[in-house]
Computed example of a mutant assay.
Amino acid sequence: MYDYHLHSNYSDGDFLRAMVAAAASAGLSGVGVADHCMVVSTDWARESRRELGFNLDTTYERRREAIESLREEFDLRVFDAAEVDYEPGHEAEIRAFLADADFDYAVGSVHALDGANVHATGHFEGMSESRRRELVERYFEKLESLVASELFEIAAHADLIERNPALRGFATREQYERVADAFASSRTVPEVNAGRVRSEYGRFHPTTEFFEVLRERGVEFTLGSDAHAPDEVGPLAAELRAFVADSGLDPVTLAV
């Protein structure tokens, strides 16, 4: 099994060596170190880079050297990847960076909504329901644009809004169908993401309804634990294995 999405200390995860060692102990055949990376020139991205220290755009070459050493040490494939924030209208910036960086593959994600992180419950919880529904629609518009751009091999956690209690439950089947149609026409594939399966959220991305809509369109999936700590890797790999067995999913293996 390949886990194409976990993080290291080159963004907001634990030490790179510890994450790869945990993946090897979990019996994975391959693991993708897909650290957060922001290259778009928006106010939100610049502020997030400063405050969160997401500097992979300047440190990826150093990380690549470390990954090459770890490939020699551990008996699994270690992919040099990045989770890159997407913003409509900034495709040229992202494309130029990815061409220069030449990662094994890129994961695209939408984290910014209304000038805030999608996770920021406090930013959204005081809004009217109609405003929150508008923002959920905006989230799916961005996701649809991400998929259509074909900048990325993988689209991360395709319904990230479900992690936020203030935005959870507002997605519609029509939104799912629009995004599913975009995936069906794109080289970009979504992932089954287990990043919050052991928290109060308690579900995979995408939700069961969204997953079934995507499968109706013949959309394929990769797998990603979205693990940030070594002790998460093994349990989340087990959760993903169980999901694959229960759903009959045949995950994609990237040609990298």
Rank of each mutant, 00 (worst) to 15 (best):
R95F: 08
F124N: 00
N9M: 14
F210Y: 09
A166W: 09
E65I: 07
A148L: 15
D57H: 12
V84E: 01
S130Q: 11
V39G: 04
R132Q: 07
R64C: 03
L254H: 01
L28R: 01
L160N: 12
A45Q: 00
L167K: 06
V192T: 01
D226R: 07
D102T: 10
E137C: 06
A23H: 09
T121P: 04
R64P: 02
W44K: 10
Q175K: 02
A112M: 13
V244P: 15
V233N: 06
A238F: 00
E209T: 11
S199Q: 08
R17T: 11
Y60K: 00
Y176Q: 00
E200C: 04
T207Q: 05
G224Y: 12
N9E: 11
A82G: 02
E87P: 15
G202V: 15
A182N: 11
G122F: 12
R203S: 15
D104Q: 02
H7P: 07
E174W: 07
E209H: 05
K142N: 14
D57S: 05
R64H: 08
L160R: 15
A22M: 08
T59Q: 09
E83F: 10
H5E: 10
S11K: 03
T188P: 08
A92N: 00
R168A: 05
D80H: 05
I154K: 11
S48T: 15
D114W: 09
A45F: 06
E177K: 03
V33F: 01
R138D: 11
A82W: 01
F74V: 02
T59P: 04
V147M: 01
H205S: 15
F97N: 04
A242S: 12
A171E: 02
L135R: 11
D75E: 13
S41L: 05
F140D: 11
H123P: 09
S185H: 10
F152G: 01
P235K: 03
V39D: 05
T59R: 02
G202N: 11
A180T: 04
L56I: 04
L146D: 01
L6H: 00
R132P: 10
R163A: 02
A158V: 13
S41P: 00
T188L: 12
A227S: 15
E72R: 15
A156T: 07
G234K: 14
